[in-house]
Design a protein around this nucleic acid. Structure first.
Lengths: 204, 204, 204, 204
DNA sequence: CGCTAAACGAGACGGTACGTCTGGTCTTTAA
DNA sequence: TTAAAGACCAGACGTACCGTCTCGTTTAGCG
């Protein structure tokens, strides 16, 4: 088993492969069982790891699931489709396709629910998932400015507010469509939604 | 404890007050403990009721919480504030204020998370909560048509699609703002959001 | 499953058959595994009972084993073999044959060892096992007095001291012979031992 | 840290002081925790030694405790008090005073209990503790023969049987009095016991 | 002197049992 | 028949030790 250099000096170093195996096992268990029937003992067994090894790295189910789900969103990218509207449609479709995967659906919503009572968990979600993907909004605007589709932003505070609003509207609408209304966020829906969003932003 | 006449004739009748006591106890437990630490035994104790009584009426934790949360949304109404934009701002603010309550936050998100793996639960949520509140969107549009702010709708299918889109955007954005971004959906934010939404709908 | 009337009024009564099944399973596990490898989870499984049922009745491994072992000694009796010496030989042989059983050996010594650090356990052992069997010494003396082999006891305190001494000598010697020296306490040994004991008591 | 020459040739020699530190730490832990709550990790920590060092020298908890307890009995000696009876009283009192120490009580009984299911451990106990102390019985008889209190022994086999019987009676009675009856083996008790034992042996 | 090889401390590893808690069911007496 | 009470089975929880294993680090004797 491969190892990595630990912070401290002495003692057997932690296995690096164990982390990856545990996160992969967590996602697999989310697919098969969902969040509420996922048990850490089962995850450990699937990962070929002892329960103690799992608890040595994560303090509980919520933290583990956040990390397992966060990795899923790293595959998001901003494809260059020629126009701002098309770029946004593209990334919204990618987001919808991730949310269509069962490990993302039940994992993400469950930790968000738990986070309503746990400030530390909320912060962990924001750091690992939300803020991490705001890069997409920023990249989209910067590319649109280069194309001349948008004027260069002047007021940075106003700009940040707009980024947050866009993010809440995009993520919120896709999540609600997918998970609550339980309808697919397909191309037609994404096109309608994107048109409303962009026209509204342009007019406001 | 008061009783009501049951359908059948013989035997001890079911207590009518038990239902209300159980739902109230459930909301109280959601406030204090959150969904994941809420136990049915504890709810029964708080309600002054035996566990068997609880199981006789609800099949499990999820169903109970859905009913307990659904009652919260019945207080939503569409105030007449003079214009479509103002009406929408009003109802969005009401929605945000409900979501600010802890029993709604953790209860709602948790059952939505569970529903990702449970078709029957998803249907129950849609019936008890979502579809039940679409009346607000319909009432808003009908009032706007009467005021002449909107032309009368012609294509009923197109109309239903628009209602769904509005609902996903409103509910999704408020939920994401409140629970994920963990920022308050205050008047300023609601005004910005409403403007983008209405302008976008008008242009599209 | 049979039940017995509980102290309280309401609620499902405890299963009486569970007690017997658990004690029997404990003895079986002592035979197969010994004290240190006996686990309460395994005992529960053998008894066809949930762990909670076991913990509801006994507070831990030691208390359970004391009760399981105590039952073994209830089969001791004082056979009438015609003379004091022969009676004593008989009961010592019975005692040795119980100690030859593996469930008695490892169970008894282990709880005695634990009792060195646990006053409550020591008291439980004395009440359940030791004092309970002093009846044999008393019965033996009373029968010997009736036969005229011993004069009637006069000083009750002196008499109690003698009973204790006899008990310590008999039980101690048999236990040490059987468990420490690991030699069988067979008829020859018992005869030698009994002769020394009785002659010594007679002379002193 | 001091070292002793090992059997092999090369490599770092084992630390001699580690053995003593470990045995002392074991006895200390027996006093504070008793056998069942004594853990090898804790003993290693107390001794200022790594767990691996401990396992390099002893194969497990039982072997370690046997060695730790065996050292306690090496301080037994046969004082010359002028007569056989007095000599025996003296050594029985010494034995009782060792058994009054908590590290001896819980340690000794626990390993005896374990030994009921472990032939190798039983042999180790007999070699390290029991047979090692039979020297006291032999020394006592030889001194009594020199004094003329006893005739010289003729039949060696008969003689060995008697030594074993004496040992079982003495050790058994003191252990039972101390650990099971939980009464002190004080001078008065020892005198009563010794009188019965010697008179019995003399008569038989 | 440096080389070699075993012993050292530290601590992570896969396991196993702990004693507790919860979920959902069942069995009693009382209303 | 329903209610309250509480025992029941099943199984997950998070912790503690077990005995083993890998590290990097001494520390002796031999060349």
């Amino acid at each position: 088993m491969q190892t990595r250099t630990p912070a401290g000096r002495t003692g057997r170093p932690r296995s690096a492969s164990a982390d990856a195996a545990i996160l992969a096992a967590t996602r697999q268990a989310l697919v098969e069982l969902g969040w509420s029937k996922l048990t850490l003992g089962d995850v450990a067994t699937r990962a070929g790891v002892a329960k103690t090894t799992l608890y040595r790295r994560w303090s509980g189910k919520n933290e583990l699931v956040v990390d397992a789900v966060a990795e899923l969103f790293d595959e998001l990218s901003l494809p260059d489709r020629g126009s701002l509207a098309a770029d946004i449609e593209g990334v919204v479709l990618q987001f919808a396709s991730i949310l269509a995967r069962p490990e993302a659906r039940s994992g993400l919503m469950a930790v968000v629910a738990e986070a309503t009572r746990d400030e530390a968990l909320r912060e962990r979600i924001r750091a690992s998932i939300v803020d991490r993907q705001k890069r997409l909004v920023l990249a989209g605007r910067s590319r649109a400015e280069q194309r001349g589709e948008l004027p260069p932003s002047t007021d940075p505070e106003e700009s940040a507010r707009t980024v947050d609003l866009i993010f809440d509207m995009v993520a919120g609408a896709v999540v609600h469509r997918t998970l609550v209304s339980a309808e697919p966020a397909d191309e037609a829906w994404v096109r309608s939604f994107t048109r409303v969003l962009l026209q509204g932003l342009a007019a406001a």
